[in-house]
Write a protein that binds this DNA or RNA. Structure first.
Lengths: 166, 166
DNA sequence: AATAAGATTCAGTGTTGCCTGAACGAACTG
DNA sequence: CAGTTCGTTCAGGCAACACTGAATCTTATT
């Protein structure tokens, strides 16, 4: 029997669930996705208990998943004076960690090909050529993507200085 | 008991296995990853039976997975005159389908945020703002990435005309 | 038409990994 | 220093999924 989640704005709950489903296809656990979605739509940081109650999940899962998301740079801890509970919020610079995560996986694959031992690459020139081309494309695109992220950083930094604390 | 895979160059088999493991973290099945890895390192297209024997998997799995990979644009069928078996090979323009696949997932997420009903976005200005910024960043980067892929296409096309069939 | 060769589908099985309750640990408070 | 409040860890249950063997479908061949 599913535990009852605290009543939440219906449309919000639904959106959280859709985000969770999406995250699941990205290799996260569903609860991880729910946590992310919930925090994305929360004005204030939330405590473990708050998340557990809201999402209808055990505190154990919340604890595990929040820390996993934190390790990946998606969540941050936020404290409150005179309160020793842990509060979580999505990283203010949110888009970047998720982008970086993907690029990392990508790089790992390139690395795999680069480390391919010569004999495994096959004596075949055809195979060798295919691997080289693949690798070249990956290098090119990874570099371009890195640049694009860099450009975004500069751009958003500039906007911030132009209208600080809009 | 694991079925015995046909003997293969040891280092090749190992590389295939590493690629498979990587693919598994990307949401593919392990056998799907093995098929991809094996074909990436194969000079010639391979038949279903060939793959099954080589990878020590049932033909049923091979059939299912190859078609799944084909649907995603990662594999292509290749025929042989006077042979009605189906042969598979990795798409010659390999890097692109995998890149596009990722961008697609990305776009799906942006879409999710864009479709966020106003009330779900929260009456909160803070939340609204966060969503807007996230969306803006995604749009920017998606556009940039698309351009980068475009540039690569042009570049490789040019190289081909300069030295056809190097 | 009958047979055969190949590919696909499907029900069943085994494994993986998520999630939970409960135990444990750590840090504050009176 | 007891008691409390949080957070984390861990063994186990359970659902989901990949993979398989066997049945089915398709297409060629004699």
């Amino acid at each position: 029997m599913p535990r009852r989640a605290a009543t939440l704005q219906a449309s919000t709950a639904q959106l959280v669930e859709r985000i969770a489903l999406f995250f699941e296809t990205e290799g996260f656990s569903r609860i991880g996705g729910r946590i992310f979605g919930r925090l994305l739509l929360s004005e204030d940081p939330m405590s473990l208990d708050g998340l557990a109650a809201d999402l209808g999940a055990s505190k154990a899962s919340i604890s595990t998943e929040t820390r996993a998301l934190e390790r990946r740079g998606i969540l941050e801890r936020a404290g409150r004076p005179g309160d020793r509970r842990v509060y979580y919020q999505v990283t203010p610079t949110l888009p970047m960690p998720t982008m970086e995560l993907r690029l990392d996986r990508w790089r790992r694959f390139s690395q795999l090909l680069e480390d391919a031992p010569a004999d495994a690459a096959g004596a075949s020139a055809v195979v060798r050529r295919r691997l080289d081309e693949t690798l070249e494309a990956h290098r090119f695109l990874l570099a371009e993507f890195g640049d694009a992220i860099e450009r975004w950083h500069r751009r958003s930094a500039q906007i911030l200085t132009m209208r600080p604390r809009r």
